[in-house]
């Protein structure tokens, strides 16, 4: 699905990612943990094509194609989805309008006709129920005036409707209370399939109780300093990151 090789990235001439290697196979769930400022969001952004980052070396191959060559919207249409750590408010563009625009762009990209209006509404309403959201959210401007938790839930709603192949979730669990966390996790679990992969950036092991990862990686100072199974997360919760950073240094 995704193969990252020795990826190095600069922001404003400062090296932030210092040689990332990561192999993600279809159906796998990878958790990425690490201290603040270690480069987790940078990695998520570079994979989804945000501007302002300079790739200075290495590669990212997605489904056999050079991911870093593609425009952000092409990556999205090809199935890469980023659930933002800080979702952006878009005044004046309704949630449902954006969903329709997004879904139809994907369909067009794959040579399919526009979604039927009734089918679309049925699909959207089903997912709204899944995430226990109020239908009114559909007609509000994207994220405008949403609480932190509502914004995160809205990201997962979009993900559920667009059915991406590679789901990158940047701290989706931060700021969620336990009830919201359960709902969001159920939403994510309902999307699990042998063809779909997840990269979950998180600070909290608790998320991994609800969504069980196949691998846990520790990103520190721009490098993956340790990888392991789900049990690594428990160890990290216990011991923090300093022992790993020391090890890496």
């Amino acid at each position: 699905m995704l193969s990252i090789k020795n990826l190095t990235v600069n922001v404003n001439d400062k090296q932030i990612l210092k040689g990332i290697n990561l192999e993600i196979k279809p159906g796998e769930i990878h958790a990425i943990m690490g201290p603040n400022g270690s480069g987790k969001s940078t990695l998520s952004h570079v994979l989804s094509g945000k501007g302002g980052y300079t790739v200075t070396g290495g590669s990212a191959t997605y489904q056999g194609k050079d991911l870093l060559e593609m425009a952000p919207e092409i990556r999205a249409r090809e199935g890469v989805f980023l659930a933002f750590q800080y979702p952006v408010e878009i005044p004046g563009v309704s949630n449902i309008y954006l969903l329709k625009a997004a879904l139809n762009s994907i369909r067009k990209h794959h040579g399919q006709p526009e979604v039927d209006a009734m089918d679309f509404l049925t699909l959207v309403k089903e997912k709204v129920r899944l995430l226990e959201m109020d239908e009114k959210f559909l007609y509000r401007a994207v994220n405008e005036g949403f609480s932190g938790g509502e914004k995160k839930r809205n990201e997962i709603l979009q993900m559920a409707i667009l059915e991406p192949k590679l789901c990158i979730m940047d701290e989706t669990d931060s700021g969620l209370d336990i009830d919201a966390l359960k709902i969001v996790s159920e939403g994510v679990n309902s999307l699990r399939s042998p063809e779909r992969s997840f990269v979950m950036v998180t600070h909290y092991q608790r998320l991994l109780d609800y969504i069980k990862p196949d691998f846990v990686h520790v990103l520190a100072n721009g490098q993956i300093v340790k990888s392991g199974g789900a049990e690594l997360a428990l160890e990290l919760e216990d011991k923090g990151y300093s022992w790993l950073e020391e090890e890496a240094a």
């Binding site: 094509g49 945000k50 425009a71 952000p72 999205a76 989805f81 952006v88 954006l98 997004a102 979009q158």
Partner: peptide
């Protein structure tokens, strides 16, 4: 960028 990441 947010809109682009949503396929636009």
């Amino acid at each position: 960028f947010y809109l682009q990441s949503r396929c636009v």
